[in-house]
Design a protein around this nucleic acid. Structure first.
Lengths: 243, 243
DNA sequence: TGATACGAACACAAAACGTGTTCGATGGGC
DNA sequence: GCCCATCGAACACGTTTTGTGTTCGTATCA
């Protein structure tokens, strides 16, 4: 409720949040503490302030959004992977749900974030290989030359790509340049590219270019995907699944 | 209590454990479930059986042993690291305690196990770089050519080495060949080698050789270390701390 | 086939958690 | 520099979760 209120206005007083939620101000303050620690908002005296200034929404906030839809996407992607495959699992909250759908599968997985590795740790039949590299603080993604070297020395059957934007015109795009570099290497190292993203990202273009639409084999998105975008993608030879 | 009982006898009936602990058999069974899942013992009908057959005790069991002593060792090693240093943090339960003592330090750390990475994740001022590689299931250590490549491309001020055995005659030894290979690379990449181990390991020699005593700069162990071993190490030019 | 061990299901107590209140400390605006 | 609003520590309370013991039907081994 707090995050929802904060999405509408940029600054919401503690008193208003207390009234809105029907609980005491003390409870609000405690919740604001947690949310601030997670990097979901900024606290000022008397109120919570939206911290979404730049491009990228912080991971813990994204992880709290549209959980059910992401779970469906994750299950759909998991269903496209065959047992025994070698898979690069990109970073992001949607691909994280893919990882969670892989618990009892037999695969070799190279996750591009520690979150992915954590999710796959209990999966006994999954062989985990980590790429290494600099660990970006919030996202816990691997970036840098070490990561790219690792991807360059291996070949994979499939890369499950999470992206910030995908259009026929601009291809796959990401917010961050160094992350895009890693994604690029992952695409180059993989025989099949599955991009997974919610419908909102199908009309969006982010800053850093990853690859052209021609390099994408499959797009998995939700049912709210705009029909014209889906048509354009299909005409461009991309297999599109709306789940 | 269960694990202690199992260290004395190799097979302890559920009824005996119930009597020993003063709780019901059902509770014992539930605890045995957990311990078996963690790989600390094996269950047979009517009893728990010690599973320590081979060389290496499983990680969750070791992590439960001598926690206080390890914590002291960890704090001592942490005190030897200067702010701003680049450090390789070896795998193992003792070095894990070193990681926990590094929470508010400013360092660049390359952990050789996921456990180490997890422990350092909340440390905001620690720059984490992971080596990558194959993830060994139980220990969660990085091994293989990828790990060695990463170590070969970097130089470090210090390596905090956890080892299974260390004697003047046989040098530093480990249980596993591929792990030893990684440790070897870590030693080669570091200007200073700090070995941390409890006193029992000072008279032990394991299977796989890591390096000679001459390559070790500092040994941190506990006060129960045998005096003659300590003397020998000092005569060999090693700085020994018993904490 | 019988005695023993097992685990699912329920009941119960203890601990942990979330919440609200009070109250002294702190901070920004006039 | 004062004052009022906000803050967080401390305590109290109800709820939830966890751990434990009991019962009882089922599975297992001699």
């Amino acid at each position: 409720m707090i995050l929802r209120a904060l999405r509408e206005r940029d600054r919401v007083p503690v008193t208003v949040l207390a009234e809105l939620t029907g609980c005491s101000e003390m409870t609000i303050r405690r919740d604001l503490d947690v949310l601030e620690r997670d990097g979901c908002l900024r606290r000022v005296r008397g109120a919570a302030v939206n911290m979404l200034t730049g491009e990228e929404t912080p991971f813990p906030l994204r992880a709290r959004q549209q959980v059910e839809a992401k779970r469906r996407l994750g299950a759909a992607v998991a269903g496209m992977l065959d047992d025994g495959e070698t898979v690069v699992l990109d970073s992001g909250t949607t691909t994280l749900e893919v990882a969670r759908s892989l618990a009892d599968r037999r695969l070799t997985v190279l996750p591009l974030s520690l979150h992915g590795a954590d999710a796959l740790r209990p999966a006994e039949r999954v062989r985990l290989v980590l790429p290494g590299g600099d660990l970006r603080a919030g996202e816990l993604t691997f970036v840098g030359p070490l990561t790219e070297y690792a991807l360059n020395t291996m070949r994979f059957d499939t890369v499950v790509l999470g992206c910030c934007g995908l259009t026929v015109r601009d291809g796959v795009t990401a917010h961050d340049l160094v992350e895009a570099q890693v994604k690029k290497a992952a695409v180059a190292a993989s025989a099949r590219v599955i991009a997974v993203l919610d419908h909102a990202k199908l009309v969006r273009t982010a800053f850093a270019r990853v690859c052209a639409v021609a390099e994408v084999d499959v797009v998995v998105t939700d049912r709210d995907a705009p029909a014209d975008q889906v048509d354009q993608l299909r005409q461009a030879g991309v297999e599109v699944h709306c789940v």
